[in-house]
């Protein structure tokens, strides 16, 4: 009576062919199997096998980079669920949000998505703050700091584009205030300096940069925050920026490994 099947259900499960086909290592209680646990798992192998002790010290790392990634996953999952019920049009956007609130008992997906978005902006900032204060942008990590700055911009843009989607007063006017700045872009905004520089190319009476062709128009797909802007922001929010962010995150995490792991004294 010494076979694994007599030592409890877990041991029995671990011995099955199904379990062993998924996990190709024994119980991780010795260094070899602990290393294998990381190495043989596609998600965990983001990590190295070993890290400096200071790299797992919470008062050193604050865990903010990891939490940012975690919140990104939360936002993705809740966002996908919200997409099932939300139509990005001026006619339906607001009522779909009302319906989500009124018709879903105990629904917290929109809450999780909104509070997560706020929290992600904060954790990204704190992550950058920690990385700066520990000098972790210094060689050899200069390039990864740059990727991080772009990811910070992605986070802000994700939040900014999401702001419009509920299509309430807060949404429309916050985006109006935010996007009005683009009018004043030098060269590219119709109230920016040098907006008339290219006009002579087309001859007298023509304008190259006007309120129907400038940077703000490109952002809003219109002269004001309206129907077309919802669709534009929806695609930017759900596909375009996450797509770029995921690519950059892959580079960011990979470079953390390649540049010597979580920073520590050289």
């Amino acid at each position: 009576m010494t076979g694994p099947e007599h030592r409890g259900i877990l041991h029995y499960l671990r011995a099955t062919q199904v379990w062993r086909s998924i996990f190709r290592h024994a119980f991780p209680d010795d260094p070899r199997n602990r290393a294998l646990a990381i190495l043989s798992n596609v998600f965990l192998h983001l990590h190295p096998i070993k890290v400096r002790k200071s790299g797992v010290r919470l008062s050193y790392t604050w865990c903010m980079g990891g939490l940012t990634f975690f919140i990104f996953l939360v936002e993705t999952i809740t966002g996908i669920l919200l997409m099932f019920y939300y139509r990005p049009t001026a006619e339906f956007a607001y009522t779909d949000i009302v319906a989500l609130r009124e018709h879903v008992p105990l629904g917290v997906m929109r809450e999780l998505h909104r509070w997560g978005a706020h929290a992600m902006v904060i954790t990204v900032w704190l992550h950058m703050f920690r990385v700066f204060l520990t000098g972790s942008y210094k060689p050899p990590r200069e390039f990864n700091w740059n990727i991080g700055v772009i990811l910070l911009v992605c986070t802000l843009m994700l939040s900014f584009t999401g702001y419009l989607l509920p299509w309430d007063q807060l949404a429309m006017w916050a985006i109006t205030v935010g996007s009005n700045m683009a009018r004043a872009t030098p060269l590219l905004g119709y109230e920016g300096q040098g907006q008339d520089l290219l006009d002579p190319l087309l001859g007298p009476g023509f304008e190259v940069v006007h309120d129907g062709s400038d940077a703000r128009f490109a952002l809003l797909a219109g002269r004001f925050v309206g129907e077309a802007a919802i669709l534009r922001f929806y695609v930017l929010h759900c596909i375009f920026i996450p797509f770029i962010a995921v690519i950059l995150m892959s580079v960011h995490f990979w470079r953390v490994r390649k540049d010597g792991g979580v920073s520590g004294p050289l």
């Binding site: 991780p28 260094p31 602990r34 990381i38 070993k50 400096r52 200071s54 797992v56 004294p265």
Partner: peptide, 29 residues
């Protein structure tokens, strides 16, 4: 420094880091 003292030895990611991540994730949730 504190960090230099602690980075002399390395720890295994399993269990020392993945458990911290797991706990942080649960608390955050």
């Amino acid at each position: 420094t504190l960090e230099e003292e602690e980075s002399r030895d390395k720890v295994l990611v399993w269990p020392d880091l993945v458990y911290i991540e797991f706990i942080a994730l649960i608390l955050c949730t």
